[in-house]
Design a protein around this nucleic acid. Structure first.
Lengths: 228, 228
DNA sequence: TATATTGTTATTCATTTGTATAACAGTGGG
DNA sequence: CCCACTGTTATACAAATGAATAACAATATA
């Protein structure tokens, strides 16, 4: 029997390929169904590579979680930097981005929840979760502060942190239930709902965030898909 | 070798015992580590009983999830009925209950998240999740409506549903991050934070919810720990 | 081109896991 | 008191799983 022909990848590419295969399996079958064999089959390699690149299955899973959180937080940070305009415009777009695809993602929520379930028992997962949460709060605080200032509202560090915690709760909850899309309401109503709720939460006048126009599809296309 | 002495339980007691052992294992080890052997060891019985009472491990897990959601929703509903007083008092207590123990529970969040991770792939989990979510929204809507009416705010069915969705998002998010207690802030600040955020979210005047006094510890103790 | 390096495959192994079945023991009816 | 019934234990078994190792091949280096 002849050996399978294979392609040699760089260290980073192979590691990423294995982590992405891991996330695909966890999203589909849960941690329970993410076996070494299924993961490597998904990645199109044989089981030996897990040991070679990560030492053990556990290490692969943990690295995949860190990789996922890195993707999610960078996705969120980029949502906040993507647009020009005043503070309210940026905060508005940030909220809207979290209530629309690709941030609103059934797959990502499933992965996120699956790993959250391990935070309590495993300090490794707890550490990564804490750092992701901290980063999200920081992004929110820096977005909130100038908006409050522009409206002559109290914007000390303590007040901003409280607002960030509450707004993060709102985003988390809406993002999760919205992504799961249980069919109890239309997903399309989420952005407006979140913007109005955000206004009220921060004590802003009606329309301060929600009247920020939604980005046109063409805008995004031209800024992302540049001819090469 | 002599056989182990055993106690014969009623059908309901034995089923409940096995489901609780299942939840204990899932909370500690995740779905991955919740094996039939560990579950039955936790329950103090042998592996054969899983087949006898639930037919298969999968059925046991699913029944345990339904059992958990039933507990969580009844816990929430009771929080809303526990206190006398006007609409604002009830809503305030409901929010406060969700931001304090026993509702604020690391164990319950871990379980909840672990199963949420299965909602996407398994319609059984999806159905149970949807019903739990629907019930929570209904409770919130019926709590919100009279409060809005009392303050002369718009309280049509559509408005109440939108408010319930937003408020549910806030509660979910704060409950989850608060229960995980990543150490980025003090859990004790959550009730006040949630009450103030709830006021703003609903457009209520400051203090409408947050000035509802916290229940005294003695009150709860005397009503729960009755001499027998 | 010759050779060392190491990424990758193929295969093996001990253990764990879910399920199945037979034997035992507690319970209630005649 | 005997006996049928069934909740429960004990044991067996095939499949799946994580880990380990040896053989092989693609690439780099000289």
């Amino acid at each position: 029997m002849s050996r399978k022909a294979f392609q040699r990848l760089t260290l980073d590419d192979r590691r990423r390929s294995l982590m992405e295969a891991t996330l695909a399996c966890v999203a589909r079958d849960g941690l329970h169904g993410a076996t070494v064999r299924r993961i490597t089959e998904q990645a199109g390699v044989t089981v030996g590579l897990v040991r070679h690149y990560f030492g053990s299955k556990d290490e692969l899973i943990k690295n995949a979680y860190a990789y996922l959180i890195g993707q999610l937080t960078s996705q969120a940070s980029e949502s906040s930097r993507q647009y020009e305009g005043g503070p309210a415009v940026q905060l508005g777009h940030f909220l809207r981005a979290n209530m629309t695809r690709p941030n609103l993602s059934e797959r990502n929520v499933s992965l996120w929840a699956t790993f959250i379930g391990r935070v309590r028992s495993d300090t490794y997962f707890a550490d990564i979760h804490r750092e992701g949460y901290r980063e999200f709060l920081t992004v929110l605080e820096t977005l909130i502060e100038p908006v409050l200032a522009a409206h002559g509202l109290g914007h000390g560090a303590a007040a901003c942190k409280r607002h960030a915690i509450a707004l993060n709760g709102l985003i988390d909850g809406l993002w999760m239930e919205g992504s799961l899309n249980s069919g109890l309401y239309n997903q399309a109503m989420l952005p407006e709902l979140a913007l109005e709720a955000g206004e009220r939460l921060l004590g802003l006048p009606a329309g301060a965030l929600s009247q920020v126009p939604a980005p046109h599809e063409e805008q995004r296309l031209t800024s992302c898909a540049m001819p090469e």
